[in-house]
């Protein structure tokens, strides 16, 4: 058994040190936002945030997670109370099939946490490792800009109306 902290909660899971985090999230914790795409760290659909950084969970063994905080898309907001990044992607209708989008949102979230006003160039460079075959790329770009604006104005929203973050 090992302990892993996901979305602010400690979980006891029965996993080997070399088990990829993605398997634990999906199979043990039933957190299915992070997707299995290639399993090789090449497509980005399994991206989660670990201690503020976007990380490919399919090539991240549990042994690396001691003392670290994992955040998945479920930890940002819910369907009824979406986080700014989720709201922005919905408002821009930035998903087509949607398989890659959870990963895209997580890396965009990590970017916005350290750079609240990224340029087009910076967003493109940041999201370059994420593959999407549907072709909503321009909407994804707009959604990240929209999320940046939403996060900016979120400060003005009264605390009890804020989405769960």
């Amino acid at each position: 058994m090992m302990t892993v902290k996901v979305n602010g909660q400690d979980h006891q899971v029965d996993a080997e040190p070399d088990t990829p985090l993605l398997y634990v999230l999906r199979d043990d914790l039933k957190l299915n936002a992070a997707k299995f795409g290639c399993g090789l760290g090449q497509c980005g659909s399994c991206t989660v945030i670990i201690d503020g950084k976007a990380v490919l969970s399919c090539v991240t063994p549990m042994v690396l997670l001691d003392g670290k905080q994992v955040t998945t898309l479920e930890g940002l907001g819910t369907a009824s109370q979406p986080a700014p990044i989720q709201r922005a992607f919905m408002e821009e209708q930035a998903a087509q099939c949607g398989y890659c989008i959870a990963g895209m949102m997580m890396r965009a979230q990590a970017l916005l946490q350290r750079n609240s006003k990224p340029t087009d160039e910076q967003i493109r460079a940041e999201l370059a490792p994420h593959l999407c075959r549907c072709g909503t790329h321009m909407r994804i770009l707009r959604a990240v800009h929209r999320a940046a604006r939403l996060m900016d104005t979120a400060e003005l929203v009264p605390a009890d109306k804020r989405s769960a973050q």
Partner: peptide, 12 residues
């Protein structure tokens, strides 16, 4: 390092 190799490297 063996566990890291198994999950992060061996797949490719």
């Amino acid at each position: 390092g063996a566990a890291i190799y198994a999950a992060a490297c061996a797949g490719c």
